[in-house]
Protein backbone atom coordinates (compact mmCIF):
# COMPACT_ATOMS: atom_id res chain seq x y z
CA UNK A 1 0.00 0.00 0.00
CA UNK A 2 1.43 3.31 -1.06
CA UNK A 3 1.94 5.98 1.58
CA UNK A 4 -0.43 8.90 1.71
CA UNK A 5 2.18 11.33 0.39
CA UNK A 6 3.32 9.33 -2.61
CA UNK A 7 0.46 10.61 -4.72
CA UNK A 8 2.03 14.06 -4.73
CA UNK A 9 5.37 12.88 -6.05
CA UNK A 10 6.63 14.65 -9.15
CA UNK A 11 7.98 12.20 -11.68
CA UNK A 12 9.80 13.43 -14.75
CA UNK A 13 8.37 11.92 -17.93
CA UNK A 14 10.91 13.41 -20.31
CA UNK A 15 14.19 14.72 -18.98
CA UNK A 16 15.01 18.13 -20.40
CA UNK A 17 17.55 20.56 -19.07
CA UNK A 18 18.35 23.97 -20.45
CA UNK A 19 21.09 26.27 -19.20
CA UNK A 20 21.63 24.24 -16.03
CA UNK A 21 17.94 24.31 -15.14
CA UNK A 22 15.92 21.15 -14.91
CA UNK A 23 12.87 21.81 -17.06
CA UNK A 24 11.79 18.19 -17.44
CA UNK A 25 8.30 17.47 -18.61
CA UNK A 26 6.78 16.00 -15.45
CA UNK A 27 3.51 14.31 -14.59
CA UNK A 28 2.40 17.63 -13.08
CA UNK A 29 3.08 19.38 -16.39
CA UNK A 30 1.27 16.61 -18.25
CA UNK A 31 -1.87 17.12 -16.18
CA UNK A 32 -1.67 20.87 -16.68
CA UNK A 33 -1.57 20.28 -20.43
CA UNK A 34 -4.51 17.89 -20.11
CA UNK A 35 -6.45 20.51 -18.16
CA UNK A 36 -5.71 23.23 -20.71
CA UNK A 37 -6.64 20.97 -23.62
CA UNK A 38 -9.85 19.82 -21.92
CA UNK A 39 -10.94 23.37 -21.11
CA UNK A 40 -10.26 24.51 -24.66
CA UNK A 41 -12.03 21.49 -26.13
CA UNK A 42 -15.00 21.91 -23.80
CA UNK A 43 -15.47 25.57 -24.61
CA UNK A 44 -14.86 25.45 -28.35
CA UNK A 45 -16.68 22.21 -29.10
CA UNK A 46 -19.76 23.06 -27.06
CA UNK A 47 -19.97 26.57 -28.54
CA UNK A 48 -19.23 25.38 -32.08
CA UNK A 49 -22.82 25.41 -33.23
CA UNK A 50 -23.72 28.52 -31.29
CA UNK A 51 -27.39 27.67 -31.45
CA UNK A 52 -30.02 30.16 -30.44
CA UNK A 53 -31.57 27.59 -28.16
CA UNK A 54 -28.63 25.94 -26.42
CA UNK A 55 -28.22 22.19 -26.24
CA UNK A 56 -26.81 20.36 -23.24
CA UNK A 57 -23.14 21.06 -23.90
CA UNK A 58 -23.73 24.62 -24.95
CA UNK A 59 -25.89 25.09 -21.87
CA UNK A 60 -23.04 23.89 -19.66
CA UNK A 61 -20.56 26.21 -21.35
CA UNK A 62 -22.95 29.14 -21.00
CA UNK A 63 -23.47 28.41 -17.31
CA UNK A 64 -19.70 28.60 -16.77
CA UNK A 65 -19.46 31.79 -18.78
CA UNK A 66 -22.30 33.46 -16.94
CA UNK A 67 -21.12 32.31 -13.54
CA UNK A 68 -17.74 33.98 -13.96
CA UNK A 69 -19.21 37.00 -15.74
CA UNK A 70 -21.66 37.59 -12.91
CA UNK A 71 -18.95 37.12 -10.31
CA UNK A 72 -16.82 39.71 -12.05
CA UNK A 73 -19.73 42.09 -12.48
CA UNK A 74 -20.85 41.81 -8.86
CA UNK A 75 -17.37 42.27 -7.43
CA UNK A 76 -15.60 44.59 -9.84
CA UNK A 77 -18.37 46.29 -11.79
CA UNK A 78 -18.38 47.14 -15.46
CA UNK A 79 -14.73 48.18 -15.35
CA UNK A 80 -13.84 44.55 -14.79
CA UNK A 81 -15.08 43.56 -18.22
CA UNK A 82 -11.64 43.95 -19.76
CA UNK A 83 -10.20 41.32 -17.46
CA UNK A 84 -12.88 38.72 -18.09
CA UNK A 85 -10.75 36.53 -20.40
CA UNK A 86 -8.04 36.24 -17.79
CA UNK A 87 -10.37 35.59 -14.88
CA UNK A 88 -12.37 33.05 -16.87
CA UNK A 89 -9.23 31.21 -17.95
CA UNK A 90 -7.99 31.19 -14.38
CA UNK A 91 -11.28 29.83 -13.05
CA UNK A 92 -11.53 27.06 -15.62
CA UNK A 93 -7.88 26.05 -15.22
CA UNK A 94 -8.08 25.83 -11.44
CA UNK A 95 -11.47 24.10 -11.56
CA UNK A 96 -10.29 21.48 -14.04
CA UNK A 97 -7.03 21.04 -12.14
CA UNK A 98 -8.92 20.36 -8.93
CA UNK A 99 -11.43 18.03 -10.57
CA UNK A 100 -8.82 16.08 -12.55
CA UNK A 101 -7.20 15.27 -9.22
CA UNK A 102 -10.39 13.46 -8.21
CA UNK A 103 -10.00 10.94 -11.04
CA UNK A 104 -8.28 7.76 -9.81
CA UNK A 105 -4.61 7.86 -10.87
CA UNK A 106 -5.11 11.49 -11.73
CA UNK A 107 -2.78 14.15 -10.43
CA UNK A 108 -3.99 17.35 -8.77
CA UNK A 109 -1.38 19.89 -9.81
CA UNK A 110 -3.09 22.43 -7.55
CA UNK A 111 -1.89 20.38 -4.57
CA UNK A 112 1.61 21.79 -5.12
CA UNK A 113 2.18 25.13 -3.47
CA UNK A 114 4.61 26.26 -6.14
CA UNK A 115 1.89 25.98 -8.79
CA UNK A 116 -0.71 27.90 -6.79
CA UNK A 117 1.90 30.42 -5.67
CA UNK A 118 3.08 31.05 -9.24
CA UNK A 119 -0.50 31.73 -10.31
CA UNK A 120 -1.09 33.91 -7.24
CA UNK A 121 2.07 35.88 -8.01
CA UNK A 122 0.91 36.55 -11.57
CA UNK A 123 -2.39 37.86 -10.16
CA UNK A 124 -0.65 39.93 -7.47
CA UNK A 125 1.84 41.55 -9.84
CA UNK A 126 -0.82 42.11 -12.48
CA UNK A 127 -3.22 43.71 -10.02
CA UNK A 128 -0.46 45.94 -8.62
CA UNK A 129 0.46 47.09 -12.13
CA UNK A 130 -3.20 47.81 -12.91
CA UNK A 131 -3.50 49.79 -9.70
CA UNK A 132 -0.47 51.94 -10.39
CA UNK A 133 -1.41 52.38 -14.04
CA UNK A 134 -4.87 53.65 -13.12
CA UNK A 135 -4.05 55.75 -10.06
CA UNK A 136 -0.34 56.53 -10.29
CA UNK A 137 1.27 57.40 -6.95
CA UNK A 138 -2.21 57.91 -5.53
CA UNK A 139 -2.33 54.11 -5.30
CA UNK A 140 -0.09 54.34 -2.23
CA UNK A 141 -3.16 55.56 -0.35
CA UNK A 142 -4.14 51.89 -0.32
CA UNK A 143 -1.72 51.54 2.58
CA UNK A 144 -3.51 53.96 4.85
CA UNK A 145 -7.19 53.49 5.62
CA UNK A 146 -9.29 56.53 4.97
CA UNK A 147 -10.47 58.48 7.99
CA UNK A 148 -7.99 57.00 10.45
CA UNK A 149 -6.23 59.54 12.71
CA UNK A 150 -2.82 60.46 11.35
CA UNK A 151 -1.07 59.50 14.61
CA UNK A 152 -1.91 55.85 14.04
CA UNK A 153 0.00 55.84 10.74
CA UNK A 154 3.13 54.42 12.34
CA UNK A 155 1.30 51.20 13.21
CA UNK A 156 -1.29 51.10 10.47
CA UNK A 157 1.00 51.54 7.48
CA UNK A 158 3.20 48.50 8.28
CA UNK A 159 0.06 46.48 8.99
CA UNK A 160 -1.51 47.52 5.71
CA UNK A 161 1.67 46.78 3.80
CA UNK A 162 1.89 43.32 5.37
CA UNK A 163 -1.74 42.64 4.62
CA UNK A 164 -1.20 43.74 1.01
CA UNK A 165 1.79 41.46 0.57
CA UNK A 166 0.01 38.59 2.29
CA UNK A 167 -2.44 38.36 -0.61
CA UNK A 168 -0.47 36.01 -2.88
CA UNK A 169 0.43 33.89 0.14
CA UNK A 170 -3.13 33.54 1.36
CA UNK A 171 -4.31 32.74 -2.17
CA UNK A 172 -1.62 30.11 -2.65
CA UNK A 173 -1.83 28.55 0.81
CA UNK A 174 -5.61 28.20 0.76
CA UNK A 175 -5.87 26.32 -2.50
CA UNK A 176 -2.80 24.18 -1.89
CA UNK A 177 -3.75 23.27 1.68
CA UNK A 178 -7.32 22.33 0.82
CA UNK A 179 -6.33 20.10 -2.06
CA UNK A 180 -3.45 18.44 -0.21
CA UNK A 181 -5.40 17.79 2.97
CA UNK A 182 -8.34 16.35 1.04
CA UNK A 183 -6.19 13.94 -0.93
CA UNK A 184 -4.24 12.80 2.15
CA UNK A 185 -7.48 12.26 4.05
CA UNK A 186 -8.92 10.14 1.24
CA UNK A 187 -5.76 8.05 1.11
CA UNK A 188 -5.47 7.51 4.87
CA UNK A 189 -9.11 6.56 5.35
CA UNK A 190 -8.89 4.41 2.23
CA UNK A 191 -6.01 2.56 3.92
CA UNK A 192 -8.26 1.59 6.83
CA UNK A 193 -10.82 -0.09 4.60
CA UNK A 194 -8.69 -3.14 3.79
CA UNK A 195 -6.90 -3.13 7.12
CA UNK A 196 -9.70 -3.88 9.56
CA UNK A 197 -11.58 -6.62 7.76
CA UNK A 198 -15.35 -6.64 8.01
CA UNK A 199 -15.40 -3.38 9.97
CA UNK A 200 -13.91 -1.77 6.89
CA UNK A 201 -17.49 -1.04 5.91
CA UNK A 202 -17.46 1.92 8.28
CA UNK A 203 -14.48 3.78 6.80
CA UNK A 204 -15.76 2.84 3.36
CA UNK A 205 -19.08 4.58 4.07
CA UNK A 206 -17.16 7.55 5.41
CA UNK A 207 -14.99 7.55 2.32
CA UNK A 208 -18.04 7.75 0.10
CA UNK A 209 -19.20 10.86 1.91
CA UNK A 210 -15.77 12.44 1.90
CA UNK A 211 -15.40 11.84 -1.83
CA UNK A 212 -18.57 13.83 -2.43
CA UNK A 213 -17.29 16.51 -0.07
CA UNK A 214 -14.00 16.65 -1.95
CA UNK A 215 -15.78 17.26 -5.23
CA UNK A 216 -17.55 20.13 -3.52
CA UNK A 217 -14.26 21.47 -2.16
CA UNK A 218 -12.67 21.21 -5.61
CA UNK A 219 -15.36 23.44 -7.08
CA UNK A 220 -15.53 25.74 -4.05
CA UNK A 221 -11.79 26.37 -3.99
CA UNK A 222 -11.79 27.29 -7.67
CA UNK A 223 -14.60 29.71 -6.82
CA UNK A 224 -12.74 31.18 -3.85
CA UNK A 225 -9.55 31.59 -5.86
CA UNK A 226 -11.44 33.41 -8.59
CA UNK A 227 -13.55 35.58 -6.33
CA UNK A 228 -10.47 36.77 -4.45
CA UNK A 229 -8.89 37.67 -7.77
CA UNK A 230 -12.03 39.70 -8.48
CA UNK A 231 -11.78 41.42 -5.08
CA UNK A 232 -8.14 42.34 -5.64
CA UNK A 233 -9.06 43.67 -9.06
CA UNK A 234 -11.80 45.73 -7.46
CA UNK A 235 -9.34 47.21 -4.97
CA UNK A 236 -6.90 48.06 -7.74
CA UNK A 237 -9.56 49.71 -9.90
CA UNK A 238 -11.72 51.46 -7.32
CA UNK A 239 -9.35 51.66 -4.30
CA UNK A 240 -11.83 50.56 -1.61
Amino acid sequence: MAGPLEQFEIKPLAEISAGGFDISFTNSALWMVIAAVLVTAFMTLSMRRGALVPGRWQGAAEVMYEFVANMLKDNVGSAGRKYFPFVFTLFMFVLFGNLLGMIPHGFAFTSHIIVTFAMALVIFIGVTIIGFARHGTHYFRMFFPEGAPIATAIILIPIEIISYFSRPFSLAIRLFANMTVGHIMLKVIGGFVGLIGIFGVLPFAMLTGITVLEFGIAALQAYVYTILTCIYLHDAIHMH
Partner: peptide, 13 residues
Amino acid sequence: MRISAEMIASTVV
Protein backbone atom coordinates in the same frame (compact mmCIF):
# COMPACT_ATOMS: atom_id res chain seq x y z
CA MET B 1 -12.14 29.20 4.05
CA ARG B 2 -10.82 32.71 3.48
CA ILE B 3 -10.51 33.78 7.08
CA SER B 4 -8.32 30.89 8.20
CA ALA B 5 -5.83 31.34 5.40
CA GLU B 6 -5.84 35.11 5.82
CA MET B 7 -4.51 34.93 9.38
CA ILE B 8 -1.80 32.40 8.58
CA ALA B 9 -0.61 34.21 5.47
CA SER B 10 -0.31 37.61 7.16
CA THR B 11 1.74 36.17 10.02
CA VAL B 12 4.02 34.36 7.57
CA VAL B 13 4.53 37.51 5.52
